[in-house]
């Protein structure tokens, strides 16, 4: 009964619905894009309608929102934050800086493509994306979760060697704890 195919399917549907309707975003703003989050969360755009809520620590969060450029120093903290989050977890790349570097394409201290270092489920482009775009990105993520396609965390685990290699290339002095998640 427990391993019954249909029973598992029903459990999956319920779980995916619950995960979709309750997305907790870890309150960690990495770049200038973090200023778009307060209007998204407050009265004007009210992201709480869709069950999107801020959470204070990575332990409680589901979504890691990379808001804008990532300097190598911040990347170290972001990787640690990401690895402390509990499965299932999702990453949203926010702004053109996470896609191809944006206006920091020639900077000596910012990475240019986020998906080389962390698995990204949804990209929101724009510089900056307005709150409408942010909410539409979240709804896209909800659709992916509902269909069971938002499996970035699984990708990260399976290709951990490749991601680690890229991360070590940027972070020269690698002093990170190992998480056995």
């Amino acid at each position: 009964m427990i391993n019954d195919k249909y029973a598992n399917k029903i459990v999956d549907i319920i779980q995916n619905f619950a995960r979709k309707s309750s997305l907790w975003v870890v309150a960690y703003g990495t770049g200038c894009g973090a200023i778009e989050i307060p209007p998204t969360m407050t009265s004007r755009y009210d992201a709480e309608r869709f069950g999107i809520r801020g959470s204070a620590t990575p332990r409680q969060a589901d979504v890691l929102l990379i808001t804008g450029y990532l300097s190598t120093k911040t990347l170290k903290r972001v990787i640690r934050t990401y690895e402390q989050m509990q499965d299932p977890k999702y990453v949203i790349g926010f702004g053109s800086c996470t896609i191809n570097g944006g206006m920091y394409w020639d900077s000596y201290n910012t990475i240019k493509a986020l998906d080389q270092y962390l698995p990204v489920d949804v990209f929101i482009n724009g510089c900056m994306p307005r709150p409408e775009a942010v909410i539409s990105g979240f709804i896209k993520l909800q659709e992916l979760i509902k269909e069971g396609k938002a499996n970035g965390a699984q990708k990260y685990k399976e290709n951990l060697e490749w991601y680690r290699e890229n991360q070590r290339k940027v972070i020269k002095n690698w002093k990170m704890p190992d998480y056995n998640w």
Binding site: I14, Q15, F17, A18, R19, S21, S22, G51, D62, Q86, D87, P88
Partner: peptide
């Protein structure tokens, strides 16, 4: 749904 999601997290 928040509680159901939290129970379904690894």
């Amino acid at each position: 749904w928040d509680i159901v999601k939290l129970y379904s997290k690894k």
